[in-house]
Computed example of a mutant assay.
Amino acid sequence: MGDLTSAGRLRVVVVGAGFGGLEAVRALARANADVTLIDRNNHHVFQPLLYQVATAALSPGDIAWPVRSIFRRQANVTVVMADVDGVDAERRVVHADGGLAFPYDILVLATGATHSYFGHEEWATAAPGLKTIDDATDIRRRLLLAFERAEIATDEMERRRLLTFVVVGGGPTGVELAGAMVELARHSLARDFRRIDPAAARVVLIEAGPRLLPTLPEQLSVVARRALERMGVQVLAGTRVTGCEAGVVHCGEDRIAASTIVWAAGVVASPAGAWIGTERDRAGRLRVEPDLTVPGHPEIFAVGDLAGAVNADGRPVPGVAPAAKQMGRYVGRVIAARAGRRKAPAPFRYRHHDDLATIGRRSAVVAMDGLGCSAGSSGVPPTSGI
Score class of each variant (00 low, 15 high):
A312L: 11
T278M: 12
G284Y: 01
H297K: 14
V288W: 01
H297F: 15
T260R: 00
G296K: 13
R315P: 04
D254M: 13
E289F: 03
C251D: 04
V288N: 01
V294M: 08
A274F: 06
S259Y: 07
G308I: 02
E253F: 08
W275C: 07
D291T: 09
N311M: 13
A258F: 05
T260P: 08
W275S: 02
T293V: 10
G304Y: 07
T293C: 14
T293Y: 05
G296L: 10
I261P: 08
E299P: 10
G252M: 12
V303W: 00
V262D: 05
I256G: 05
R287H: 14
T278R: 15
I261W: 04
A274E: 15
A283D: 08
I276Y: 09
A274K: 13
S270G: 12
H250T: 10
W275V: 07
I256S: 05
R285Q: 14
A272S: 12
G308R: 01
P295V: 00
I300A: 13
V288P: 03
P271D: 12
F301M: 09
E279H: 10
V262M: 13
P295W: 06
G273K: 02
V262R: 00
G304Q: 08
P298E: 05
P318Y: 00
P295Y: 06
H297S: 12
I300M: 12
I256L: 15
P295L: 04
V303C: 02
G319R: 07
V288C: 01
L306N: 08
V320N: 12
E279C: 05
G284M: 05
G308S: 01
P298N: 07
D305M: 06
P316V: 00
R280Q: 15
A257H: 14
A307G: 03
A264P: 06
H250Y: 12
R280W: 07
L292N: 02
R287L: 14
A258I: 03
G304L: 12
D313M: 02
R280L: 11
G273I: 06
I256Q: 06
D291Q: 07
I261A: 12
A272F: 03
L292H: 02
V267L: 14
V310S: 13
R287A: 08
T260A: 08
A283G: 14
V317T: 11
A265N: 11
A309F: 03
T293D: 07
I261H: 10
V294Y: 10
D291L: 09
A257F: 10
L306Q: 13
I261Q: 08
A307Y: 01
G296N: 11
D281Q: 00
H297R: 15
A272M: 02
D313S: 01
R285S: 09
A307D: 00
S270K: 10
E289R: 13
G284L: 05
D305Q: 05
G277K: 09
G308F: 01
E289N: 14
V288K: 00
V320I: 15
V262K: 02
G314W: 05
A257Y: 10
A269Y: 01
A274I: 04
T278G: 09
A309Q: 07
A302M: 09
V310E: 12
S259D: 12
F301D: 05
G273C: 11
C251I: 11
A272Y: 00
H250Q: 13
G266K: 04
E299W: 11
E289L: 13
V320F: 09
V310I: 11
A269P: 06
R280I: 14
V317N: 02
A312S: 13
V320L: 15
